[in-house]
Write a protein that binds this DNA or RNA. Structure first.
Length: 277
DNA sequence: GATAATGTTGGTCG
DNA sequence: ACGACCAACATTAT
């Protein structure tokens, strides 16, 4: 579920809720694999009595600063969420980790599908060193990006989903960026001409920033849907042009949007605006 | 009620 | 190097 805009929304909500600055009085883990590779005891003892000094985001990771040599790296995977619960007894069956904060609140990590991970790091720069460039930062340069595309023979969609080149894109925003740039998801990266490559370079930050501005994308109403700490859904789903809109008319030309599978992921595109090369 | 699909990542295998 | 496939899980839509 959560891609860069959703994690950024979560970060902003946690900061607005003043979680940074709080001490961690207690940590309770109800599904041990949420904190693997640590043992529950190690995870708890490493954090108990410490404080959350600050937070940031890298790709789809949320980073809590505990000390110079201790960070908590959180990846939400498909259905991870944070929210506050009244007390430990009121915890939902999918609330797998609880943090008792210094001001008395209980912050819960909820994750219906249990893919999310909370792991400790003594060096987050090294542990997240595999991640590529931040697409909303100045290092996301046009010449560098176009050069990387030229040197890769991979299909453009799996290349963009690979966090090693650009960090933070997932299935929704890749489909939206490819539509905005008029590129078929199976196109070989190296076969894109400069005009298409530059269009893609522009569309990636555009669709991501739009997602951030709309506080993320919340599809459906189920338990695994995206909700930030405020429990309000995002509203970016209303602005999606192609994602999960197969059978509906393209907003540009009216052609029926198609759904195909690329790299084992459902992919949505307009066959007229994004012709197969 | 069974079956397919789901927004992520990491592994294997050819 | 790359892509196909699977696994980790639970829920929702069909």
């Amino acid at each position: 579920m959560p891609e860069l805009p959703e994690v950024q929304t979560l970060l902003c909500d946690l900061e607005a809720a003043h979680v940074p600055g709080q001490s961690i009085e207690d940590v309770r883990v109800f599904w041990s694999r949420s904190v693997q590779p640590h043992s529950v005891a190690d995870f708890r003892s490493a954090l108990q009595g410490r404080s959350v000094r600050g937070m940031s985001r890298r790709g789809k990771y949320l980073i809590w600063y505990i000390a110079d040599d201790l960070n908590l790296l959180i990846h939400l995977r498909m259905t991870g969420q944070f929210h506050f619960v009244e007390n430990p007894d009121r915890r939902d069956v999918h609330d797998h980790v609880l943090f008792h904060l210094g001001d008395g609140r209980w912050l819960a990590f909820r994750d219906t599908r249990k893919f999310g991970r909370l792991r400790l790091s003594t060096d987050w720069r090294a542990d997240l060193g595999h991640l590529g460039v931040e697409p909303l930062e100045p290092q996301f340069e046009c010449d560098w990006f176009c050069g990387a595309l030229r040197r890769s023979g991979r299909q453009i969609k799996p290349l963009l989903l690979d966090q090693k080149l650009v960090a933070g894109l997932g299935n929704i925003y890749v489909d939206e960026a490819l539509f905005a740039a008029g590129i078929h998801p199976k196109t070989r990266a190296s076969s894109l001409d400069t005009e298409r490559a530059v269009a893609l370079w522009k569309s990636i930050p555009a669709v991501l920033q739009r997602g951030v501005d709309h506080m993320g994308t919340s599809l459906g109403t189920g338990a695994g849907n995206f909700y930030s700490v405020s429990r309000r859904p995002g509203r970016n789903q209303d602005g999606l042009r192609v994602f999960r809109r197969q059978g509906l008319p393209c907003p540009h030309c009216g052609t029926v949007i198609e759904r195909i599978v690329v790299a084992q992921r459902s992919s949505h595109f307009c066959p007229h605006c994004q012709p197969d090369s």
